[in-house]
């Protein structure tokens, strides 16, 4: 596209404009890595990552916390003390043993509501990350591999998608479209957040395709798509995994903002929707902090755990970051 953007993406394929920053350029310097085991690793190559993974405190901590929340999302509703959206107790009850997070303006049990809401958050996060990942990878690979005019067109397209504020677009669409599903929300997030993945993947494909092993693959008569998938993609497998984790977290966060504005799933069971109702029904003025603090705190822990695990994974994949 332009000199400016090329300079930006090729010097360091970090995506500072991404909703979440955290993926470091491959080959970046060691950064405060957690001290790992004293003994140097001496096993086979296959178990190498696993060896470092289980010894990385950040990864173990982040993944552990995340697994607890995922389990809560999956089995939580079966153990929820009350049905989520029904009047089960007097309104405005303070947190107590009977109602762990108190009750809302409508006499709903906030703890049960929270347990039911986790599922939608993870579902939307996963869908958003999956769609953004697939579109971003596809466009990045094609633009980086083919180059030339196709690259120009795809980059211009990416640029235009970046320029149009997705939240504003969703508000305009939401004014016309009366009912959404969690699926729609996830797809919409995916369709609007792929550009930074595409830019980073394009930049990396660009540098990788000039390597000798790619030339050899070409000489062997392999076709383009096969080279991209079999020779180029594996070289950025770790980057793709890290980007997916960041996309997952940012999709969940974006969904909270959408739901907060009343643009979320019409079923109305989500963390952002709890915030929305608390705001609309004067939860602030009535000092019902147990209504709107828990959903945001849960989301913060869920995303923070992903970020911590992401930093840990980065150290596992990148030998330069290991301190053995």
């Amino acid at each position: 596209m332009s000199d400016v953007d090329q300079a930006a993406t090729s010097s360091a394929p970090v995506a500072p404009g991404a909703p979440l920053t955290g993926v470091r350029a491959p080959g970046a310097a060691p950064v405060g890595g957690a001290p790992l085991g004293r003994k140097a690793y001496s096993g086979g190559r296959r178990w190498e990552f696993l060896y470092f993974a289980v010894r990385n405190k950040k990864l173990v901590l982040g993944l552990g916390v995340e697994i607890i929340f995922v389990l809560a999302a999956i089995i939580g509703p079966y153990f929820a003390p009350y049905p989520p959206k029904q009047f089960v107790a007097p309104a405005f009850l303070h947190p107590s043993a009977k109602h762990l997070f108190g009750t809302s303006y409508f006499g709903q049990d906030v703890f049960s509501l929270l347990l039911y809401s986790l599922r939608n958050s993870y579902l939307v996060g996963f869908l958003g990350a999956a769609f953004a990942g697939v579109i971003g990878l596809g466009i990045g690979f094609i633009a980086g591999w083919r180059g030339g005019w196709l690259d120009e067109i795809l980059q211009t397209f990416t640029y235009i998608v970046v320029m149009i504020p997705s939240l504003v677009l969703l508000i305009v669409i939401g004014a016309y479209l009366k009912s959404h599903s969690a699926f729609f929300e996830g797809v919409f997030i995916g369709v609007t957040t792929w550009p930074w993945v595409a830019r980073a993947v394009r930049a990396q494909t660009f540098t990788l395709r000039q390597r000798d092993f790619v030339d050899l693959a070409r000489l062997s008569g392999k076709r383009g798509p096969a080279i991209v998938l079999k020779d180029i993609a594996p070289n950025m497998a770790s980057y793709i995994l890290l980007a997916f984790i960041l996309l997952f977290g940012s999709s969940m966060l974006i969904a909270v903002n959408y739901d907060f504005l009343g643009l979320g799933p019409t079923s109305g069971i989500s963390l952002g929707d709890m915030l929305n109702l608390a705001e609309l029904w004067s939860g602030l003025q009535l000092h019902l902090w147990w209504w709107f603090i828990p959903p945001g705190a849960a989301m913060t822990i869920m995303v923070a755990a992903l970020l911590v695990a992401n930093v840990g994974l980065d150290e596992v994949f990148n030998p330069k970051l290991r301190e053995t």
Partner: peptide
């Protein structure tokens, strides 16, 4: 590095709507 970085990550992990609500509740309401 040990203070700014974790704080920065924490702010990145917070849903913005929630941070704003919590700030409005604590600093303005309470």
């Amino acid at each position: 590095d040990n203070t700014v970085l974790p704080l920065g990550y924490l702010f990145q992990a917070m849903p913005y709507a929630w941070l704003a609500l919590a700030a409005a509740f604590y600093l303005a309401q309470l």
